[in-house]
Design a protein around this nucleic acid. Structure first.
Lengths: 190, 190
DNA sequence: CGGGTAAGTCAACAATTGTTTACGTCATGG
DNA sequence: CCATGACGTAAACAATTGTTGACTTACCCG
């Protein structure tokens, strides 16, 4: 590992902070993560967080926006959805599982009302997308409720996997895809 | 509610601290809750937390044990389970919903390894109970995985309700029972 | 080459954290 | 009734938190 003579590059430093923060916040949550942890991970000084993101909450909001953007792009790339349960399983237990799953960020709360709004709107958007993707009869309000239960299951799986609950935590995406398929077939026909 | 001239009663203050802590920890999580918050809710001096529970982590462990005990007793009282989906919906959206749902404690992490073990063992126990209650073929390892997905959905519902995701958050137990019934029927036949 | 500015560091700040120690005070049994 | 011990409080502690201001250093353009 050649020591990379870290050159001065605001954009790169900003990104390093953002990446470190997204890992930490996703893995440990907002209050359990200190700005010094993040700066240390990124290999830069703490003061730069305030400089580039205004505050710890500003950094958290930036993380949320990043994750939301990644999510949008990811579903956009995979349109049309050929096999939703399988693609969901990929998101929950994909092969790149050494990193903490970014979707966990959608479950982390900071107390900041702006971040909370982004979070809520994103979850709402996802569940609506799920409901309409189910097609059939998207006017039926029960379909939206079913979609939110499916979303609950997906995010619950993330949490219980991060809690090392076996055998769920050790299941690969193939094993996980099966119950997801059954559940989705039951709750979101179409 | 007659104001009870709070007499000196170690057991009562201990319980007051425990109750306040269980509410706070369930609602806000471990790191977001300060011992002064808890003591203030209980109307008692902070130092008594260290006196009665050794430390903040000791208090958290006591909260976990309390919730686990309540849970055991609750399922014990309702044996045999006549209508699991309905009873689950009752737990997730029962009529006493002004208080933060105690099951959320099972998703709160403190960093303390002992608490983490209790948490994991409890979740494991619940999922095994679900799997065997499903009867049919409890040797099939896929049944346990299915049970853990059901558990994921239940806990995910709690989280998304606490995130005020509509319409899930506003659903009463009747509305919630329906998708749960469908999901359980699909994943845990028997 | 050299100065100006963006990039980064350092050190201190006030506030808050969990915990402890020394000190009051109530109640109760002899 | 009153001393003794349990119960409770107050104040301080060191450590950690997020944030800021003054300082240094590297880079780039003229």
């Amino acid at each position: 590992m050649t020591t990379p003579v870290r050159r001065r590059d605001a954009a790169a430093t900003r990104k390093a902070l953002l990446d470190a923060a997204r890992r930490r916040f996703a893995a440990d949550g907002y209050t359990s993560t200190s700005v010094r942890d993040i700066a240390s991970d990124a290999g830069v000084n703490v003061a730069l967080i305030s400089r580039y993101f205004e505050s710890k909450e500003g950094l958290f909001r930036a993380c949320l926006r990043g994750t939301v953007d990644d999510l949008k792009q990811s579903v956009f790339e995979n349109l049309p959805l050929t096999d939703p349960p399988r693609q969901l399983a990929e998101k929950l237990a994909g092969p790149h599982t050494k990193e903490p799953n970014q979707l966990l960020l959608l479950l982390r709360t900071s107390g900041d009302e702006t971040a909370e709004r982004i979070r809520r709107e994103t979850l709402e958007s996802i569940s609506r997308r799920l409901a309409t993707a189910a097609g059939s009869d998207s006017d039926d309000p029960r379909i939206l409720l079913n979609a939110q239960v499916v979303l609950s299951a997906a995010l619950g799986v993330l949490i219980l996997r991060s809690a090392a609950l076996q055998p769920l935590a050790a299941a690969d995406q193939d094993q996980l895809a099966e119950p997801l398929r059954v559940m989705i077939a039951a709750l979101l026909p179409g």
